[in-house]
Design a protein around this nucleic acid. Structure first.
Length: 310
RNA sequence: GGUGCCAUAGCUCAGUUGGUAGAGCAACGGACUGAAAAUCCGUGUGUCCCUAGUUCGAUUCUUGGUGGCACCA
């Protein structure tokens, strides 16, 4: 009495911040009885509910949510951890259900989940800190020379002005004993599910208006107090986040509250632009008019009913 | 009402001894495989308020407007 194995579906909702991803994801989840996984590198953290626009209690009650407020701000959590944890969670979900939704603005995390990361060594915080310090003390030339020696191929194509790229590459070379470029193949990994990627689309001007209003709403909801509570731990990676850094500067006394709020709006717009660049280059991303969620729902239904492998 | 000052990029302003202009911020484009709401790279987008003169040539000088600011009435 065995039946054909059902195809499993992961519906990915990406797109810029403030475009209505959360609401669209809930609509999809409700229509298809699917749980939601956050793919947002900042909504993972407790204590950052307002500033990262985590789903509110009503939204949390409207669908099954995962990866929201599940880590402490002093946890080091990376896209590699996320790939592992999300795949494990989906394994369980797909034993009883056919469809899940992943929603978030962190393009790298979505890639990790859908296509996978190459098998590379983890970060070495001590090594990193040392190289970072050297870089900023004027020693970037030596770091670059070392990379050129250990991985000339990557040295040629890396953005040499970007310490993150250069230091990470060198870190991998040192820890693995092999050139970084030989460890990367960027081949999409096999997944036990097929994926559909969609994102809400709207005129730039409208998105910026929504961002401004959302920032005002965050302030009204108590963002300042939320940031104040995290101020002592401002150096943590989790707090290198739009909405907090600007308020920390204000707490330092270097800006007025009004200036801080304007900065948050501006930096959120810049963040949205970077997200649009990232998602815009993904050929599989389908953009739907944000004010026509039914179009997206119809497309998701057609995808789920289709027999296409991917 | 009179006098003076100002009018140049989305904003604040610089500048051209007459040869159609450039800074900051904003904005825009891009990169990005274990920090990714991070990190980094690139781009000037302009009836130089309008009008009529002078001139080979006016954003620049002159006339007259318009708008703004200040002071005097």
């Amino acid at each position: 009495m065995s039946h054909t194995k059902t195809i499993k579906n992961l519906i990915v909702v990406g797109g810029p911040t403030g475009s209505g991803k959360t609401d669209l994801a809930i609509k999809i989840a409700q229509k298809f009885g699917a749980p939601i996984l956050s793919a947002d590198s900042r909504q993972f953290y407790r204590g950052m509910a307002i500033g990262t626009a985590q789903p509110d209690p009503a939204q949390l009650a409207a669908a099954e949510h995962h990866f929201i407020a599940c880590r402490e701000v002093d946890d080091d959590y990376t896209c590699g951890d996320y790939e592992r944890d999300a795949l494990a969670l989906l394994d369980g979900i797909f034993t009883t259900r056919d469809t899940a939704v992943a929603v978030g603005g962190s393009g790298l995390y979505i890639n990790a989940l859908c296509e996978g990361m190459d098998d590379l060594p983890d970060a070495d915080p001590e090594l990193r800190a040392r190289m970072e310090e050297q870089w900023h003390a004027g020693g970037s030339g030596q770091i670059l020379a070392r990379l050129q020696q250990l991985d000339p191929e990557f040295y040629d194509k890396v953005d040499r002005a970007n310490p993150r790229r250069v230091i990470r590459a060198l870190e991998v070379c040192i820890k693995s004993g092999a050139p970084y470029s030989t460890l990367r193949n960027a081949a999409p990994k096999e997944r036990p599910f097929r994926t559909m990627k969609l994102a809400p689309d709207m005129p730039r001007e409208e998105l910026y208006g929504r961002i401004d209003r959302r920032v005002e709403g965050m302030m009204a909801a108590g963002l300042e107090a939320e940031a104040r509570a995290l101020y002592p731990r401002r150096a943590l990676n989790a707090l290198q986040t739009v909405g907090y850094r600007e308020l920390f500067d204000h707490f330092d006394g270097s800006t007025t509250l009004t200036e801080a709020v304007e900065s948050i709006k501006r930096n959120t717009r810049r963040y949205a632009k970077r997200q649009m660049t990232w998602f815009g280059r993904d050929p599989r991303m389908q953009w739907f008019a944000a004010d026509r969620p039914q179009d997206a729902l119809d497309a998701v239904e057609a995808f789920i009913l289709s027999e296409t492998k991917n």
